[in-house]
């Protein structure tokens, strides 16, 4: 990897982290564990379409680890990591079939996969299937949030060539 590439990835990671930290300050209108706008994923979607899969994975890993430290809630890391892995794998697969005009669709599916990953982690950690009741709520809010971040990323990709 050359230095230019490395700097770009570092820059994107820090942008994602800044968005993540600012989002922590926005009060959450839905008092349901796991519901979030996830604005930092604008960077993830952007990276999925502009960078190699391994490079995107690096950005997401750095964001997750530093985000868990900055938010002071390291117990949430397991859930978000499980979600991020599912989301990333799904989006990287979808990138091959979807044209640039349908990036939002990729983001919505990514968000849904993220929620499914989160809930699977919760089922395993809490050893109870009761938490599955949260899945429909997470899927509805998650896909709306994914639609928003996806549209943001789509506009960004069009402007930044």
């Amino acid at each position: 990897m050359n230095i230019r590439r490395l700097t770009e990835l570092a820059l994107l990671s820090s942008v994602a982290l800044i968005i993540f930290v600012i989002e922590l300050r926005i009060p959450n209108p839905f008092p349901i564990p796991g519901v979030k706008l996830g604005l930092a994923n604008i960077v993830t979607v952007y990276a999925v379409f502009r960078y190699r899969p391994s490079e995107t994975a690096m950005i997401v890993t750095v964001r997750l680890l530093l985000g868990a430290m900055f938010s002071g809630n390291p117990s949430a890391l397991l859930y978000s990591a499980a979600g991020a892995v599912c989301c990333l794998l799904g989006m990287l697969a979808l990138r091959r079939i979807l044209p640039e005009k349908q990036i939002w669709l990729c983001s919505v599916l990514g968000a849904m996969l993220h929620n499914i990953g989160q809930i699977s982690a919760a089922v395993i950690i809490m050893r109870s299937f009761g938490v599955i009741a949260y899945l429909p709520l997470l899927l509805v809010t998650g896909s709306l949030a994914g639609l928003f971040t996806g549209l943001c990323a789509q506009i960004l990709l069009k402007r930044i060539k």
């Binding site: 669709l105 919505v108 599916l109 849904m112 899945l135 429909p136 709520l137 899927l139 509805v140 896909s143």
Partner: peptide, 10 residues
């Protein structure tokens, strides 16, 4: 598929 999952979840 996305629309179907969304509606079922709603």
């Amino acid at each position: 598929a996305v629309a179907a999952i969304f509606l079922v979840s709603v």
